[in-house]
């Protein structure tokens, strides 16, 4: 599934990380279409500040929903009486870290996020816009601590991976 349409970068962190995982789970989450319509309406009405703030809140809510899903997944594994004392979970998504966005196609074929109202466009993007999808990787925290030496890291300004990895390292 990870290979998707064969358009990933040759070397990616996830390619090295997921074989080391204890457990893997695909996920797709949305906060729905209503908030996106409201943002669009506010922009059209000229309420730019409110629109931008609501957009930020909606993006953050989607991320928090992802964090909650991670926790629930770990709780589920623990409830299955498996030993995950030293393990942690981190999300990876098509479109980031060398995993080509076309990877969404196979993910959708398998997971069927349409059932929760998420559809995939021809450009492999999700609608509603405030949706996330990808792979949750459970394993020792060290497996996620990759070097930023991949060619695509040079062109990435956000380097949000460092923040996310930093968070699990502190846990």
């Amino acid at each position: 599934m990870y290979e998707g349409e064969g358009r990933n970068e040759t070397a990616t962190p996830l390619k090295e990380i997921f074989p080391l995982a204890d457990n893997l789970a695909l996920f797709a989450i949305t906060v729905g279409e209503t908030v996106s319509s409201e943002i669009e309406a506010l922009f059209e009405e000229g309420d730019f500040a409110l629109a931008a703030m609501l957009d930020t809140v909606a993006s953050e809510a989607t991320e928090i929903a992802g964090i909650i899903a991670e926790r629930r997944y770990l709780e589920f594994l623990v409830s299955e009486r498996r030993n995950f004392g030293e393990s942690t979970v981190l999300r990876y998504s098509p479109g980031y870290c060398g995993w080509h966005v076309s990877g969404q196609k196979r993910l959708f074929e398998f997971l069927r996020p349409e059932e929760v109202g998420i559809i995939l466009t021809e450009s492999y993007l999700m609608q509603p816009l405030k949706s996330i999808s990808g792979l949750m990787v459970v394993g020792r925290r060290e497996i996620h601590d990759f070097e930023m030496s991949y060619p695509f890291c040079e062109n990435c300004r956000t380097q949000e991976c460092r923040l996310r990895i930093g968070t699990i390292m502190k846990r």
């Binding site: 943002i39 922009f43 730019f48 629109a51 931008a52 957009d55 966005v101 466009t121 450009s123 492999y124 993007l125 999700m126 609608q127 816009l129």
Partner: peptide
């Protein structure tokens, strides 16, 4: 650009 649905930043630039 093609393949990208995110437009908040682009909207702000337009404004």
């Amino acid at each position: 650009v093609e393949g990208d649905l995110h437009d908040i930043g682009k909207n702000l630039v337009g404004i």
